[in-house]
Simulated assay, not measured.
Amino acid sequence: MIARAIERGVSSVEIADALDLQVQSVLRRFRLLAGISPEAAEMLKDTPCSMKVFGILRHARRPVVENGAPTAKRSE
């Protein structure tokens, strides 16, 4: 809901005031899924989890399959 409100032009300050949150907290929640694969986001959409999980997922790499065997190769 925060992302939708910001996309529709509501300022983060107005949202923070309405929800009694700090502006930085509103912005952090707005960027929550940035860098997360759509598959991971779909799996977590109905699951309560801490904010730390999203930071871990941003650093996770998808396994690359080479010659039929998955490897943990980093894409840079």
Rank of each mutant, 00 (worst) to 15 (best):
C49Q: 03
V53H: 03
V13H: 15
I15L: 05
H59R: 09
L32G: 04
D46S: 12
H59W: 05
I36P: 14
L33G: 02
F30K: 15
L32Q: 09
P38T: 07
S25M: 06
S12T: 03
E14P: 04
H59Q: 09
V64S: 14
M43E: 02
G9A: 07
A72S: 05
R29N: 08
R62D: 08
I36T: 05
F54I: 14
R29I: 01
R61D: 14
S25G: 15
K45V: 04
Q24P: 09
K45P: 08
R62W: 00
M43D: 03
T47I: 11
E66L: 14
P48G: 05
V53W: 01
E14H: 09
P63L: 09
L57I: 09
D46N: 10
L57V: 02
P63Q: 07
S75E: 07
M51N: 07
F30V: 02
G68D: 13
G55H: 10
E39F: 09
D17F: 04
K52D: 14
A18K: 12
A18W: 03
S25H: 15
K52M: 06
I15M: 04
S75R: 15
G9R: 06
D20L: 04
Q24N: 15
L21D: 11
D46A: 13
R4E: 04
I36Y: 08
A18N: 11
E7L: 02
